[in-house]
């Protein structure tokens, strides 16, 4: 769907750019004049997936709106590491909201721009999974329900990471966090709780819902660009691995996102008006162990007595995603 059919090209379409491609075929990130919306000097950890995902997404949005963009930013890692007073890493108009009300702040910005007749200026709201799926969920649902003209981007790293890795409602089952410790009969986060907000957003039947990962830049840019070409409430959830919270080497952030997609743990799709319209197929299916084993937050599954039952349950969840979103089938 989102991949450009570039023929006779040695590295397919997954590299960021290439000297052999015409400039218009390259990604926004390959451009020497990209906005660098989130600039150097920010205090994110080494190999931060969220810092990367935010620059990918906001640069694409800036490119799509001719640089007429304002962002509201929920409290969370992204805000903390990018704006320690008085410094800012943002090279766009940017407003810091409370933890829970960024969707409402963005709604207000969109309303004000409408009143002022500034239809060319567009609004993005962004936050982590804590600010989106837990604390800000009421405001977010309201924004969806009113179909406000805002693109809400959630950077999903599966927990409250900068405060010490606590569980959120986006923390996957069995994962160890500071509040779901690897002790007892069912160590780590419990199965059967939490929520997958993209599905809830679809239930609001808003114009556009999509998921993406930092491992598929072109897909991510395609989705942000498409979203900025639409009006009304739009929602994109981007999987952004967290070396700190996941316990992975800082060099493997993109690899982890790729494994999440290739194992089916994180389905990558897009939906319009509540219906799935396209999915990013799995290129080479892998068992979930490939994804779980490198992460220290799952280390308790691979001890002296591997928890094959738990691993099998996670595999079942991945298989369900593959079935539900048709991640392997041809055609869609």
């Amino acid at each position: 769907m989102s991949l450009q059919p570039i023929k006779f090209y040695q590295t397919g379409t997954f590299t960021v750019g290439n000297r052999l491609l015409a400039p218009e075929e390259r990604s926004v990130q390959a451009n020497m004049q990209r906005t660098n919306s989130l600039n150097s000097g920010h205090r994110a950890c080494q190999g931060c997936g969220e810092a990367l995902g935010a620059r990918y997404a906001i640069d694409a949005a800036m490119n799509a709106t001719n640089r007429q963009l304002i962002a509201a930013n929920a409290t969370g890692c992204l805000e903390v590491f990018s704006t320690p007073y008085p410094e800012t890493s943002w090279q766009i108009p940017w407003i810091h909201s409370l933890f829970g009300n960024t969707a409402a702040v963005a709604t207000g910005m969109a309303a004000a721009l409408k009143v002022k007749g500034r239809s060319e200026v567009r609004v993005v709201a962004q936050g982590g999974d804590g600010g989106t799926t837990d604390i800000g969920f009421g405001c977010l649902s309201g924004m969806f329900e009113r179909n406000d003209d805002v693109l809400y981007i959630c950077y999903d790293n599966g927990g409250y990471m900068n405060t010490g890795v606590q569980r959120s409602s986006a923390t996957p089952p069995a994962a160890r966090t500071a509040t779901t410790m690897a002790v007892g009969d069912a160590p780590g986060n419990v199965f059967g709780q939490g929520k997958f907000v993209p599905a809830i957003a679809m239930a609001h039947e808003i114009p556009y819902v999509a998921t993406a990962t930092v491992a598929d830049l072109r897909d991510l840019e395609y989705k942000v660009t498409k979203a900025m070409g639409m009006h009304g409430a739009r929602y994109i959830q981007i999987l952004v691995p967290c070396p700190l919270g996941w316990g992975t080497p800082s060099s493997d952030t993109i690899r982890m996102a790729r494994l999440a997609k290739e194992t089916g743990v994180f389905p990558v799709f897009e939906a319009e008006n509540g219906e799935v319209t396209a999915v990013l197929k799995i290129r080479k299916r892998l068992p979930v162990e490939e994804y779980l084993k490198p992460q220290k937050r799952y280390a308790h599954l691979f001890g002296k007595q591997p928890r094959v039952d738990t691993i099998a349950s996670i595999q079942a969840l991945a298989d369900k995603n593959i079935r539900k979103y048709k991640l392997l089938e041809e055609g869609i």
Binding site: S27, R55, T253
Partner: peptide, 11 residues
């Protein structure tokens, strides 16, 4: 291929 230029979280 621009990969290093693209994937650096720190520009």
């Amino acid at each position: 291929c621009d990969n290093c230029y693209g994937v650096c979280p720190d520009n």
